[in-house]
C-alpha cells in the first residue's frame, strides 16, 4: 500500500520563539482519506495543518508529499502547493477581484489553463456550489458563507490532490455553517482527500474516516470516528469531548 500514501509526516516539530507548538508528529494521510483534526485551542492543530503546505516552516522532521520531501532543499514548493488546496478561517478572498477573477487568476498566471478554460472550469465549480449567478460580484458583496464556498471552489479550480481546511466554519454566523459543511460533505463524497481542522464534531463524526486528537503538540489519540467519539481511550480525549459535545 506504499503508493497509497499521499502525505507522510515524520517527526514534525515546530517552535515559535522557543515555545514548542508541535512536539513530534507522525502520521500518514492516504488518498481518499478525510482526516479531521480536533483538539483544544493552542494544541497546535492549525500549525500542523499549515506545516503540511509549508506556510509554516517546520523546525524539524519532514513532510513527504506525493513521494517528494517538501522540507528538503531545492524543492519547487510552488509546484507542490498547486496540488494542495487550502481554505482559511478568514476566507482570504482577493477583495480587488471579482469572484470569477479570484478563481481564475492562479490557474491562468501559472499557465495551467488558458483564460477560457479557467473560466469554464470556474463557472462549472460555481454552479456546483450554487453561486454561478455571483460570478461578477466582488467578495465584499457576499455573505460569509458564500465567501467560504467561493474560497473552496477557488482552491478546487487548481485541481488539487488534497484539500486542507483550517477551521473553515469558525468565522461564520451559525446559520451559514451548514451551507459550507454541505459543500465539504459533497467534496468528501466525490473522493477528495481532505485534512480538516475543525470544531464541528458532527461533521467529524459523520464525514471523516479518521479523527486525530491533538493535545499539547502531540497526537494524543487517533482512530475512526466511532472509536474516538464512542469509545475514547484517553482521559484527555474524554474530558475534551465532554466539554464540546
Amino acid at each position: 500500500m506504499e503508493n497509497n500514501k499521499l502525505i507522510e509526516v515524520k517527526g514534525l516539530t515546530k517552535q515559535f520563539h522557543k515555545v514548542d507548538v508541535l512536539k513530534g508528529i507522525d502520521v500518514d494521510i492516504n488518498k481518499g482519506d478525510v482526516v479531521c483534526v480536533i483538539g483544544p485551542s493552542g494544541s497546535g492543530k492549525s500549525t500542523f495543518l499549515r506545516c503540511l503546505n509549508l506556510l509554516e516552516k517546520p523546525t524539524g522532521g519532514s513532510i513527504i508529499f506525493e513521494g517528494e520531501e517538501l522540507t528538503g532543499k531545492r524543492v519547487d514548493l510552488n509546484r507542490h502547493r498547486q496540488k494542495m488546496g487550502m481554505v482559511f478561517q478568514q476566507f482570504n478572498l482577493f477583495p480587488h477581484m471579482n469572484i470569477l477573477e479570484n478563481m481564475t487568476c492562479a490557474p491562468v498566471m501559472l499557465k495551467k489553463m488558458t483564460k477560457a478554460e479557467a473560466e469554464a472550469k470556474a463557472h462549472e465549480l460555481l454552479a456546483r456550489v450554487g453561486l454561478d449567478d455571483r460570478a461578477d460580484a466582488f467578495p465584499g458583496q457576499l455573505s460569509g458563507g458564500q465567501k467560504q464556498r467561493v474560497a473552496i471552489v477557488r482552491a478546487l479550480c487548481m485541481e488539487p490532490d488534497v484539500m486542507l481546511f483550517d477551521e473553515p466554519t469558525s468565522a461564520l454566523d451559525p446559520e451559514m455553517v451548514g451551507e459550507v459543511l454541505d459543500v465539504m460533505k459533497e467534496l468528501a463524497r466525490s473522493g477528495m482527500t481532505m485534512v480538516v481542522v475543525t470544531h464541528e464534531m458532527g461533521f467529524a463524526r459523520e464525514v471523516s474516516n479518521r479523527v486525530m486528537f491533538l493535545d499539547g503538540g502531540v497526537i494524543a489519540e487517533e482512530g475512526t470516528p466511532d472509536e474516538m467519539f464512542n469509545h475514547p481511550q484517553s482521559e484527555r480525549l474524554r474530558s475534551f469531548l465532554s466539554k464540546v459535545l
Binding site: 503546505n53 506556510l55 510552488n78 509546484r79 507542490h80 502547493r81 498547486q82 496540488k83 494542495m84 488546496g85 487550502m86 482559511f88 478568514q90 482570504n92 478572498l93 482577493f94 477583495p95 480587488h96 487568476c105 492562479a106 498566471m109 501559472l110 477557488r154 482552491a155 487548481m158 486542507l164
Partner: peptide, 24 residues
Amino acid sequence: GQMEAGRSLGLSRIQTARRIVLPQ
C-alpha cells in the same frame, strides 16, 4: 492572509506581491 492565500494556490512570492498585495 492575502499573501498566504496566494502562496497556497501555488503562486510565487513575487507573483502574489505583484498581483494580489500591491494593487490593494
